[in-house]
Amino acid sequence: MNIIDVSHLTFSYKKNNSYNRVLTDLNLQIKEGEFVCIIGHSGCGKSTLLNILAGLLLPDSGNLLIEGKALTGPGTERAIVFQHYSLFPWMTAYKNVLFGIQQARSELSKSEAGELARVYIRKVGLEDNVKRVAIARALAMDSKILLLDEPFSALDAKNRNELQQLLEYLLDTNGNRKTVVFVTHDIEEAILLADRILFMRQGRFEAEFTVPFSRPRNRENTLSSSEYKKLKTKLIDLFYFDSELETNEDF
């Protein structure tokens, strides 16, 4: 069964009686444990789609099922990391993670939740890095679905690489992988992390690619492989040239 099932989704931003159509008749099926990257230029609607999946925006029309149930609003079975923010600035790193755990897992006692918060902060390393703490919180919430909106785009190359590796490692540790929807405009990042890459243009999925590498992935081996180079060339062509390209799957 698909854990995320989106069909015929349409969304417009309304402003003073004028409608700005952002997503048009969108279909998206994601299997449990799948890592899907959505890439596209800014303004193509990829962040809007993520906000709809998070329950922050309501679609104009279409069906949206999470684990078979219609989506009505935000829920802790979906943890989200936003591009620039996520944490509450008045809380410490520890309190932020703890707050997420308490919201998502009310069955845990205060000391259990505290212990878990410490464990995840240790896992991500530096607690003065807001991105790492945001990821620690999202993972500690033990949600089935992770929604990540360009989480690494504001970082320098070194931190970005480290966090990509960390995400790969953390997602793989406990047997059953989480389902991830990852929005990015970084082609290299998409190929490194995803099982499937969807290219979005003007509110529609224009192309779909399956990433062939096995997990856990090694950064250097992946980057130097010929499949990586082929995939990257195709994506760059899509990204920077308006040419029609055949994809490796019918779409």
């Binding site: 906000n51 998070a54 329950g55 922050l56 609003g73 935000p74 829920g75 802790t76 979906r78 943890a79 989200i80 936003f82 620039h84 923010y85 996520s86 944490l87 509450f88 008045w90 809380m91 707050f99 997420g100 919201q103 998502a104």
Partner: peptide, 27 residues
């Protein structure tokens, strides 16, 4: 809006919203 969104996605109820989010926000 980003503070509001961050709180919404954590599914906070009114009581938690007022005590843990809005109070420290306005202090």
């Amino acid at each position: 809006p980003h503070i509001l969104d961050s709180a919404k996605v954590l599914n906070v109820n009114n009581k938690t919203m007022i005590r843990k989010i809005l109070l420290p926000y306005v202090i």
